[in-house]
Simulated scan of single mutants.
Amino acid sequence: MILQTPILALLFASALAGLVALWAGWFSFRVLRHWDVASGSRQQLTLERSTQLVSTLFGFVMLIEIATLFLFVFNADRMAALFVGAMCAVGTLNVNPYGFPALYLKIAVFFAAALWLILDRLDRAGYDYPLTRLKYAAILGIAPLVLASAATELAYFANLKTDVITSCCSKLYTPANEGLVADMTGLAPANALWLLANAGGAVLLSGISVLWLGRGERLLAFFGAGLFFAALTAIVSVISLYVYDHPNHHCPFCLLKREYGYFGYALYLPLFAGTVWALGAGLVRSIPCGDSLAAVVPEAVRRLTVLSLTAFLLFGVAVFWAVARSHLILLG
């Protein structure tokens, strides 16, 4: 099982990310201890040259980590045919206790990696390395997350056994269960859509405030995160029903299957991207920036805001299309 090409690719990417994260973390201690941009010492010049190499390699593996989230989910869905009882990625991830923790950690790494890349790009725009200490302190926080993700992913793939009878999505996404997933599944369609519409409206208003008034970036980040969770709730509660034309099929993973036109990607890609850019706008405005970034930060915030609103708009269009084309009537 572990020798399948997609699994080997995922494990290789995780191992590479883990090694680079360890190396970058070790280098981060040197930067935080000895970095002094006002110094002209040999040690400082060596650090300045080395930071370019470390940042480039760490940024490269962060891009890989972002991409492997979608490969991980796609591969989990593809492997469903190998396990008795599995119909989609849910069954594959339920084969052993490490499946869903591996997914959640990869999602956490996705957001951490994307925000670090935004921070790194902003730092490179300054002539005096204004955010170097901050971005290398961030590496110390990201590195354990990357290592935990790699270890959990290895445990998951190493313990895959085809003789295990797993549970399908219909057993998990049902109001009859207990817990958060059951609460999301059992939420009334009208309430889920109301929550989604209000979260989207809050994001729109805060984004307009950023673009027209030059303030409200932290609110945009807050409401963007809220829209992310409201959207996931609405997908499980109601949007999936419209896509499947079935009043009881709540699975958010079957949306990624071929028989539904891979429609889930039209929902998840702009949703994740919009959330990252909204959080990025709040992050950029919140960090202390020197004179070298005084003219760069406002433009970076505007660009991130426009990208976030555009991505969320694409998500909204996908939701409207799912509802409009469906033959299922849930409201009215």
Rank of each mutant, 00 (worst) to 15 (best):
S240C: 09
F253A: 14
N248S: 15
C251T: 10
S209Y: 00
G264R: 01
E259V: 11
A221P: 05
I239S: 07
G216Q: 03
D245A: 15
L232K: 02
D245S: 14
A221N: 02
F228I: 02
L227T: 06
Y260K: 02
A234M: 08
S240I: 10
A266N: 06
L256C: 11
Y262H: 14
R258W: 10
Y242W: 15
G224L: 01
Y244H: 15
C251S: 15
V236D: 06
Y244V: 08
Y262Q: 06
A230D: 03
L211C: 00
V243P: 11
A221E: 02
G207H: 00
L220T: 03
L267H: 10
A221G: 07
A221S: 11
F253G: 05
H250S: 08
A221W: 03
R215K: 13
Y265I: 12
L213S: 07
Y242M: 08
L227E: 12
Y244K: 07
F222K: 02
G264D: 07
A234S: 11
G214T: 05
P247C: 13
L255W: 05
Y268G: 10
C251A: 10
C254G: 15
V243R: 12
G207T: 00
L227N: 11
V243E: 09
V238K: 01
Y268M: 12
F253W: 14
A266F: 14
V238E: 01
Y268R: 09
Y260A: 01
L267I: 09
N248A: 14
L213D: 09
A230Q: 04
N248W: 13
I235L: 12
L220D: 06
L227P: 03
Y268E: 03
K257W: 00
Y265M: 11
F228Q: 08
C251D: 11
V236T: 15
Y265R: 08
R215Y: 06
A221L: 02
F228M: 12
V243G: 11
L211N: 00
L227W: 08
S237L: 04
F253Y: 15
G264C: 07
L213K: 13
H250W: 03
Y260S: 02
L256H: 13
R215Q: 06
L267N: 06
A234N: 04
L213W: 13
A225D: 00
Y262W: 15
F229H: 01
F263W: 14
E259M: 08
E217I: 00
A266T: 10
L255F: 05
G214W: 05
L232P: 00
F253Q: 12
T233E: 01
Y244G: 09
T233N: 08
A231M: 09
A231V: 10
H249N: 14
H246L: 10
V236R: 01
L232Y: 08
E217A: 13
C254Y: 09
A231L: 07
H250K: 03
L232V: 05
A230K: 01
R215C: 02
L255N: 02
Y262A: 08
S206K: 03
Y265W: 15
V238I: 07
T233S: 05
Y265F: 15
